[in-house]
Amino acid sequence: MSPPAESAPLSGRQPKAVRNALAVLEEVIAAGPGVTAKEISAALKLPPATTYRLLNLLVAEGYLVRLPDLRGFALGRRAGRLTVPAAARPPAAARAVVERLRQRVRWGVHLASYHSGRLTMIDTDPDHPPTGAAVLARFPHASALGKLLLADQPDWRAAVPELRRFTVHTVTDPARLAREVADVAQRQLARQCGELHPDRGCLAVPIHDVASGALVAGLAVSGPAERVAGPNVELVELLTEHAGQLAPLLA
């Protein structure tokens, strides 16, 4: 019952429907959360039945949500993916903390932001360049920083469009990944051993907003896969300590 895989070009009234759907999305942003279907229909001069259909479609896709009164609409979580992530440079104080960690370990140290639900590298180790940013953002299941993001999602499956296999160690079984994600959420530590590159691995800890407790960033160290597999008690302690120092600096 999934939509048929059509490769046919847009035809008939479809271009108009696409335009209308985008107009509805824009109108919800312009009017603010709580706007009703009737108000949207009036503002856009769209026939009510068309508006209701488009709204139901956008809600089904997760771009919009219905508020608990079932009348009002607001932007859904998925709408966050329509914005270009603000890859703002972290403040100098935060970069100093990351740099201090780099001095103390012989591993690569990277800082990632999870702004609007997407993984963006904001401070990467120049001496140990990480995997390309686009790959990390698209395949969160294969990296430690990505798994931290998944562990924070109410429905992590929606955030993984494709379980691509990079190495023999990449977790591509949904059930196994579900267990791992639950484990990451519980231990507040993500690990990746040779899942992206056969000989590299990563450990990552989350950084939560001090006030709201929301996940804002992740701090990772990367090194040889066989070293990552070990318990690394001291390393994890060091990582957690620096993450704690970063939390108040990354609002």
């Binding site: 959360p33 607001a74 932007l75 859904g76 979580r77 998925r78 966050g80 609007s116």
Partner: peptide, 12 residues
């Protein structure tokens, strides 16, 4: 299954 805070886009 009401919309909960986690289902909303941050800005909303």
């Amino acid at each position: 299954d009401e919309t909960s805070a986690a289902d909303l886009f941050d800005g909303h």
